[in-house]
């Protein structure tokens, strides 16, 4: 099966174009499952769509564009981990349930200590993915000894939780040893890639809303969009966004991007998102600092995306170290 980037984008915009920004969580989750987007990168042998990173990138970017709630990124990580567990007897059944929308969640923190923080929609999840370099496992929801603590974030488009398990149970082991290390690395790269896509979609949407606003808002007998001081700021945003988008698609189809490559991409994309969302509030003036307008939703999601998955300091340093080792005359 093959779908172009443009076809996926069209499908997503048709599906979510009507619902507006930050759509209803339950309805949109059902729609995501119906449209088959959770099976995007699942191999066809496992009843998935077998589409690659470019397709996943298109979907995450569309989710970012509409400020999609829900655990889509975490769910895709759980599904990816399950798909790698070749010898697991219940694998196919679990994947089928996950693709149908049964919530299986994971941490988006990017931390490597195996603690479960920043877990979206943990209150309605049936399974929890636990990733460490030594072991990747799936922990079922337990009636006793499990603690799910809601952590209210400034960003209200996502719902994050801390999760602890009292009994040090193993859960369902998906990978161990060298296989776990490789899988953990791949899952981290996918998380970073998904956050980058989400950020670029969001950045594009809020930039467009800002341009629209400048076109209609009139002061001094002319639209604000006529002032060169503002046009140049908008043009700079468009330029950094376009370059980062080009990098995103280049890395999506690169043969073997390293974790540092994906981290640097995520750092770049979230920094651009944050900068555009900050400018958007400023350029909207008074209305931008009210809850009535959507600006703040983008700003808060952008800030959260900066913090999730490891921040720009960490990934820029990693990219610098990698380039220092590679760049030899």
């Amino acid at each position: 099966m093959s779908l172009t980037r443009a076809e996926l984008q069209d499908a997503a915009r048709k599906a979510f174009g009507e619902t507006g920004l930050a759509p209803d969580a339950e309805q949109s989750w059902a729609l995501i499952a119906d449209l088959g987007w959770l099976m995007m990168s699942v191999p066809e042998a496992l009843e998935g769509l077998g589409l690659g990173a470019v397709a996943a990138g298109a979907i995450h970017s569309e989710f970012g564009r509409v400020l999609m709630p829900g655990p889509a990124i975490a769910q895709m990580l759980a599904i990816e981990a399950l798909a790698a567990a070749d010898t697991l007897a219940v694998r196919d059944e679990l994947i089928a349930r996950a693709m149908a929308g049964e919530v299986m969640t994971a941490s988006l923190s990017g931390a490597v200590d195996g603690r479960l923080t920043c877990v979206p929609d943990a209150d309605r999840a049936s399974q929890f993915l636990i990733v460490s370099d030594a072991r990747v496992s799936l922990m079922p929801r337990a009636d006793a000894g499990m603690k799910v603590t809601p952590r209210e974030t400034w960003d209200r488009t996502r719902r994050l939780f801390d999760v602890t398990f009292e009994h040090n149970a193993d859960g369902l082991v998906l990978a161990e040893g060298a296989a776990a290390l490789a899988l953990a690395e791949r899952l981290r790269a996918q998380l970073l890639f998904a956050l980058a896509g989400d950020s670029l979609g969001g950045a594009d949407a809020i930039l467009q809303l800002t341009v629209d606003y400048l076109m209609v808002r009139r002061q001094f007998d002319r639209p604000l969009a006529m002032f060169q001081a503002l046009k140049h700021r908008v043009a700079d945003m468009k330029t950094v966004l376009s370059a980062t988008e080009a990098l995103f698609w280049a890395r999506a189809s690169a043969p073997a991007p390293s974790l540092a490559d994906m981290g640097a991409l995520k750092a770049n994309a979230t920094t651009v998102y944050r900068a555009i969302a900050e400018e958007a509030v400023q350029l909207h003036g008074g209305i931008g600092l009210t809850m009535e307008h959507h600006c703040h939703l983008f700003l808060k999601r952008a800030m959260l995306n900066c913090a999730l998955g490891g921040d720009a300091d960490r990934w820029e340093e990693a990219a610098g170290r990698q380039m220092l080792a590679q760049a030899v005359a």
Binding site: T244, A246, L247, A250, G320, L324
Partner: peptide, 21 residues
């Protein structure tokens, strides 16, 4: 230094990517 170098390297990759595109 590593951060600034890493950030620049990524920006250069983005420049190559947008020229390609």
């Amino acid at each position: 230094v590593l951060r600034d170098f890493g950030r620049l390297a990524t920006k250069i990759d983005a420049t190559v990517a947008i020229a390609d595109q």
